[in-house]
Design a protein around this nucleic acid. Sequence first.
DNA 1: CTGAAAGCGCTTACAG
DNA 2: CTGAAAGCGCTTACAG
Lengths: 342, 342
Amino acid sequence: MATMRDVAERAGVSIATVSFVVNNTKPVTDSTRKRIEEAMAELGFRRNSVARALASRQTRILALVYPALEHHLSTSGIEFITSAAREARSNDYHLVVWPVSNDAAELADLVGQGLVDGVLLMEVQLADPRVGVLQSLDSPFVLIGRTAEPSGLDYVDIDFDESIRRCVDHLWDVGHRNIALISGDQRVPSFERYGPYVRMEDAFRRIAAERHFEPVVLNTRSGAKYGREIALELSRTHPQASGVVIFGEPTVTGLLAGLRAAGRRVPDDVSVVAALAAADIAYTTDPPLTTLTSPGVELGQLAVRALLRRLSGGEPLPPELRCGEFLPGESTAAPPHVAPSA
Amino acid sequence: MATMRDVAERAGVSIATVSFVVNNTKPVTDSTRKRIEEAMAELGFRRNSVARALASRQTRILALVYPALEHHLSTSGIEFITSAAREARSNDYHLVVWPVSNDAAELADLVGQGLVDGVLLMEVQLADPRVGVLQSLDSPFVLIGRTAEPSGLDYVDIDFDESIRRCVDHLWDVGHRNIALISGDQRVPSFERYGPYVRMEDAFRRIAAERHFEPVVLNTRSGAKYGREIALELSRTHPQASGVVIFGEPTVTGLLAGLRAAGRRVPDDVSVVAALAAADIAYTTDPPLTTLTSPGVELGQLAVRALLRRLSGGEPLPPELRCGEFLPGESTAAPPHVAPSA
DNA sequence: CTGAAAGCGCTTACAG
DNA sequence: CTGAAAGCGCTTACAG
């Protein structure tokens, strides 16, 4: 591999001047720039990114941290990663994946290596020990999600309030008055005070209060298997619930299978809205699910932008909350024995 | 951040000696080792990985290359990535994600930066231009998948032959004689001569010849939507097909929805086997799918090991072909109008 | 067993 | 506009 020294020699200039044209960081006469560019082309020069990182004190590498053991990555999680990696690349950054546990020590160890300029933190808990670690190490970071008190922190997150509102509104509008939310199970260790669960439930209760209906909230672990089980529980404990908003891609497909197994027809007996799922999910189910999609792609991009802004030393970007798209399907209809409201 | 120089000063030794204990690369007396370790602890020393990379000429970073635009990452793709990242970490390596197109120039550009010690190449085509690039750049690499002529190359791949055989055997054993394979669509540009499609179809035809049945092969783009469509096409063009082996996670769920929409019962009218899907998929469908799982986790680990072996300069690891697990579900049964063979 | 020193390939004040 | 030189924080022959 040709180095800057090789290029400089061939072009008859100093390596500093080569650096100036490679990085376009100082004015250089057209003629010497041309000589240097020719030399680079002839030698097939490629700037060594490690040497640059050491000298410039920035690696142009970002880390994506997610607790892989504890949280299965959903389709939207995948979209998020791919989107973040792509946004990073288009800014000449790299993205490393750190599937570390939700444990602060390992994260501190990794950040301490000095390999990355900043960190994207996925699956944030309301009280997340990793935030303190990052702050004390003085490492720039952006949360995907947010803590209980995120003021002053950079974050992008799903707008749970608006998301749940749209799902409930849809059910309400077609006539449902007995609406249940199926959220996640906070008793699972790494999901204690898990932001999405808490925020969805809060939003749901708030909306129920506004609308004067009795909120039914069930909690289940994530996974198709558990979705199947919760379908049975719902039918047993809340047979009157005619509309269901459910979070989690694998869980909702399990729910449909479970409802069918329990002899309950969708949407004739029960209407189901899949909240924050992939758009594709409607095609995978019968009937096609009414879906509020997850804004994974958008959040991935926004998160990287916020982090890059922070790295540039510029004015931090304001937090962003995003909602997915509402895609009507065939899993929702008027409740049984009730005429839809005009 | 404390540097080796700081540690050396505090311990009253040279930085070389500090390096020897940090890397455990030369014998050091117990007493001076102890002094150095104390100094490191007191200063909270963490070795700077960028400086090490420059000096030692290895970054200990691996790249995972996948054409994100062209190929949607499936659940097993994610399992693969997470598994690879974890195996890398447990060997003190990092994994960067390069969602680059299937285009050789961009890959050459990235590798030329010298950021990574080696490359994992996903979604390999039978004639893959990226292989030549990597060879000419002299960059160690491992294929996930393989080209038409992979001899001499390091690779890990799914054992398509055995996978398809297991799926067909299962259908055959319960009495099916009209068996169809639903594979991918090679007319889609980035899937031309895509290894998995070609190999599955070849295997299927070979098995059909052995068993003396007429192989039906349909091709469809990947995605739930297309799965739905292919269900209709299958019913129209091959109504006699009583058993179906289908590849692709989103596609199979679409197929089930489409079959139901077409009024065909699973497994009473048609038996369906999901080949190389996530184990979880059975829970998401009604009936639960009979599934041959994808060995994503195992392959991720094997691929990284093969690459690390190559980097170590040791004897290359032999290629590995892996099959998933066969998980009987409820989507397969004896064909209609035919008693199962004793 | 330990140290002095060169060097990895760049960037970046500083001078001119 | 261009160059000489220090320095980023390590590793690694080479000596002793």
